[in-house]
Amino acid sequence: MKYSKFIKAVAVGMALITATGSLPGAAYAEGEKVAVFLKNISNPYWRAVRIGSEKAAKEYGLDITIVAPTKPDNIEEQTRQVEDWIVKKPDAFVFVPVDYKAMEPLVHKANEAGIPVINFSNRVENVDLVSYIGSDDFTIGYEAAKYLFDEIGGAGKVVYIEGVPAAITAQRRKAGFEKALSEYENIELLTSQTGMYRRLPALQVMENLLQRYPEIDAVMAANDDMAVGVVEALKTAGRLDGVPVMGVDVIPDAAQLIKDGKMFASADYSGHDQGYLAVVAAARHLRGEEVPANISLPVVIVNQGNVDPWLLEPEQKPTPDWDAVIAAQ
């Protein structure tokens, strides 16, 4: 009798597992199967990427699945996900590495398994890519920093709030910032501290720095979540006036602050467009079209003057025109 209990347990388990299959996973059409790998699912930036890629999938009738680590930006988890998906052999990978060096052998494995890989956001080196789409973190850090330095007349005391230490985007954005810094000899970097890419830590770090530095002319944060935290800290301390805050990503509430004149500007990396174009590239490649090996997107600086389109939800954003993008290369 107890054995039957065990069998029952197994049966219930099986039923549950089969039921799990009906948990939501995106499926649009009967078309080619494409796995889209993202870095995380909590940051609004990656939501925009996802929506962009879903729009392309709908338009081209692809069956895409969004795959993202449940621990944000976790190398070990993305490694497992890629391995699992190589087993499933979809028609193509659309891939953002959580770390472009660490994911190299995985992409290599996908190459060996004959799965075409479209890479965007961070380029994976030494592997076969159908196409690479995006602007890189170094450029965005560099461009954003230059724009901010120009705003304060190329001279002044600046604070930099870094992302998660050892995260690749944080590294590259900081490197870009430092390059800009080296080009402006009258800009003094007071300090560079981590805000962990999160609002609350950034807010608290900024509060502490406000105690330390009675004079701060400008602040740059490696992403908008932190930039908004910085604005909040400056506001509470009554020191927001005349201190421009620059961020990266243009998340919705940062856009609102820019619109209200409380935050200076942010640099966009257009996640929505990248996600869209990457999936379109996959579709076109799978259907035998030639796709450029390199599609670079310009960094857009978003300030009070041009912020309006960024106040739209990503669902309402217009998709970029493929032919126009290609023509601009």
């Binding site: 909590s42 944000p72 999160r198 609002r199 609350l200 807010l203």
Partner: peptide, 16 residues
């Protein structure tokens, strides 16, 4: 209290 302080929330607010 935290979101009253930061003024916004996303799914990662409890991380770390």
């Amino acid at each position: 209290v935290i979101i009253a302080r930061t003024g916004a929330v996303d799914a990662g607010v409890g991380n770390d």
